[in-house]
Design a protein around this nucleic acid. Structure first.
Length: 305
DNA sequence: TACCAGGTAAAAA
DNA sequence: TTTTTACATGGT
């Protein structure tokens, strides 16, 4: 077992606490992500090797600097490099907020949230597959139920490791959930249909690992129509995959109930916004709709809405 | 006790 | 083609 310390320099402004807090729903543990003692921790599975990354802030919002400690067995320089790039991706450190902030200065509720949430970057799932599974698990049900089910599936099918007496789990590999029986998945409190979705998607991804890999030039609509061919993936799930799994800047989860309620309250004077009105309305934030969405949800989680 | 919750596919109209 | 409905479960 060895241990390597390295530094990460996010693109400022970068608020580490806000970004990790949003990512973990301000809980000490959410799914495979941990947020305790001012440290973000995550067990990563890299080439079948498990390593724990612990990250803390050593800088400020405008001069951000993070310190990452990687622990594992027989760590190579390559492992550390991979872990670092995965953590940078999860924590959204390379995003540049300037253009988004500049684009919404006259948009009042949102601009106000941006002042409160200055330096919040969009955190990502570790992989497109992870974001897809988490999104499907979250369909239709309340956040409390979603969190419960997400944790159950990670603890049952993710690779475990113990560090300093604490149990950590990597996010399950596609093959693990592809091999799971529907009956076993049902034990994790999901509906039979949801178990079918999870199992089916995992089988497809286990078989074609590059299915969720897209080139830079590919259009969001092209990606959406491709992933919606997966059973269990509708447009809501596809849009969240664009935001949380692929790092696209201009996605918008039309049909999201919480989002609809927030827009109704903030922009339509309590007159319920119709679903078909969401997409046209969202265009005011293009090409930064993923940020607008994230800042609205972040404001919501902080009780600002 | 009902009814809702950060949807979706399949059935029915 | 468009509109309902079943789905599981914890919270209120």
């Amino acid at each position: 077992m060895n241990r390597v310390v390295t530094n990460i320099f996010p693109k400022g402004p970068y608020d580490f606490e806000l970004t990790v807090g949003y990512h973990t729903y301000y809980r000490s543990r959410y799914g495979a992500d941990h947020w305790e003692d001012d440290k973000y921790r995550r067990l990563l599975e890299i080439d079948n090797k498990l390593l724990l990354a612990s990250v803390r802030s050593t800088g400020t919002v405008d001069r951000p600097e993070l310190e990452m400690v990687v622990e594992g067995t027989a760590l190579s320089q390559y492992d550390v490099t991979r872990a670092k790039s995965q953590i940078e991706w999860i924590l959204g450190t390379s995003q540049d907020l300037k253009q988004f902030y500049g684009s919404i200065v006259d948009d009042d509720p949102l601009n106000n949230f941006c002042q409160h949430l200055y330096g919040l970057h969009i955190p990502h799932a570790q992989s497109p597959y992870e974001s897809l599974i988490l999104a499907v698990l979250g369909q239709q049900i309340s956040n409390n139920v979603a969190r419960l089910i997400r944790t159950l599936i990670i603890e049952k099918y993710g690779s475990p490791a113990k560090y300093n007496g604490m149990d950590y789990y990597a996010f399950p590999q596609p093959i693990s959930l592809a091999k799971a029986s529907l009956e076993d998945l049902r034990l994790l409190k999901m509906s039979y249909r949801k178990a079918e979705y999870i199992n089916g998607i995992s089988q497809v991804i286990a078989d074609q690992s590059d299915l969720l890999t897209f080139a830079e030039y590919q259009d969001n609509n092209e990606i959406v129509s491709k992933i919606m061919q997966l059973r269990g993936v509708g447009r809501w799930t596809a849009q969240w995959l664009l935001i949380k799994g692929l790092g696209r800047m201009d996605a918008f989860p039309v049909g999201d109930l919480a989002l609809k309620q927030m827009l109704t309250k903030l922009y339509f004077d309590q007159t319920t916004l119709k679903e078909e009105e969401m997409e046209p309305f969202s265009k005011r934030w293009s090409p930064w709709r993923s940020y607008a969405t994230t800042y609205l949800f972040a404001a919501n989680r902080q009780g600002l809405i």
